[in-house]
């Protein structure tokens, strides 16, 4: 309302009633009486939704994991997530794992870490897995530099390519799909069978496309042979050392190896292995088996 109007309305009032004490903002008496009849009641604040974050005094790592596994601190069933979960444990970072899926991630892929922030009004920036190592270096007191061996990158490529490709094949394209991927990735995602079928189809095509990038024809024999060679090479690299490259403490490389060896060796992954070729290949590498058992008993005592 324009200010002139107020003045025009007010002036006649003051003139007529001769009550200069009453201002425009005083509540009129009848309405005041009406409101006095109602008691002022303040309701208690609503509870937070069940899914709201409760304890914000810890870093939270979002990974693929079953709900029971998350509360027990079990290892994740996804190699990419397990690698970082193990690495953070190596570096003595206090964190909690939360079951999640790719749709929840800002980058579209798990894992990511929501760091603890001292200022509750500000939401902390999520840290994707590509920046997790740098973050750990600056946030953990006991984090160790990776060994500067000139063969480090070369052996890492064995894991990231050969073993990963065999893992993709054995998990998504072999009969293990029904016994492992289905109970772990598909059934928890939805109860609708059309959605489940779509997810199954998407996962399989994604794995196929990834494999077809590197060879025009995918033959399981080649993939498994390459993975077996890679495991044998890692076996010789480890020899009788406790950790890879003769390090004092386990590092990211040990975590990356453990992520695959543990899952491949795990008899109870999903509903168990049907195509056991990769499983058998790892069991033959004695050093890798004891390396895995060492990490499992030290860092995942509950599992």
């Amino acid at each position: 309302m324009p200010p002139e109007n107020i003045e025009r309305d007010e002036d006649p009032q003051n003139d007529n009633r001769h009550q200069p004490s009453r201002s425009l903002f005083t509540v009129p008496a009848p309405i005041e009486r009406l409101f006095d009849r109602f008691p002022l009641l303040t309701y208690p604040a609503n509870d937070l939704p069940l899914r709201a974050p409760r304890n914000r005094n810890e870093h939270v790592l979002y990974v693929f994991i079953t709900l029971d596994g998350a509360s027990a601190g079990a290892p994740s069933y996804n190699p990419g997530c397990l690698k970082w979960q193990t690495y953070l444990k190596f570096c003595n970072v206090n964190f909690r794992v939360v079951s999640s899926n790719n749709h929840a991630s800002p980058s579209g892929a798990l894992p990511f870490l929501l760091p603890l922030s001292s200022d509750t009004s500000k939401t902390a920036q999520a840290i994707p897995s590509s920046k997790l190592q740098k973050w750990t270096m600056s946030n953990s007191t006991t984090a160790v530099e990776e060994p500067s061996d000139l063969r480090y990158e070369a052996y890492l490529s064995l894991l990231d390519h050969r073993i990963r490709r065999a893992w993709l094949y054995t998990l998504y394209l072999s009969p293990n799909f029904t016994s492992i991927v289905e109970p772990l990735y598909i059934l928890p995602a939805s109860v609708n069978s059309i959605v489940r079928l779509t997810i199954a189809h998407q996962l399989r095509t994604a794995a196929e496309n990834e494999l077809l990038k590197f060879s025009a024809v995918v033959t399981p024999d080649t993939l498994y042979k390459e993975a077996e060679e890679a495991f044998a090479a890692l076996e010789i690299l480890l020899e009788h050392n406790t950790w890879f490259f003769g390090a004092e403490k386990p590092g990211l490389f040990d975590a990356s190896v453990f992520a695959y060896t543990h899952l491949v060796m795990d008899e109870n992954l999903g509903n168990g292995w049907i195509d056991t070729r990769l499983h058998d290949a790892v069991l033959q590498s004695k050093n890798l088996v004891s390396h895995r058992n060492r990490i499992l008993t030290t860092y995942f005592p509950s599992a």
Partner: peptide, 16 residues
């Protein structure tokens, strides 16, 4: 993608 011959492989029960 070359799959191994289906005769030799067993299949697990699928919930889908």
């Amino acid at each position: 993608i070359v799959y191994p011959s289906p005769s030799g492989t067993k299949k697990g029960p699928s919930a889908l």
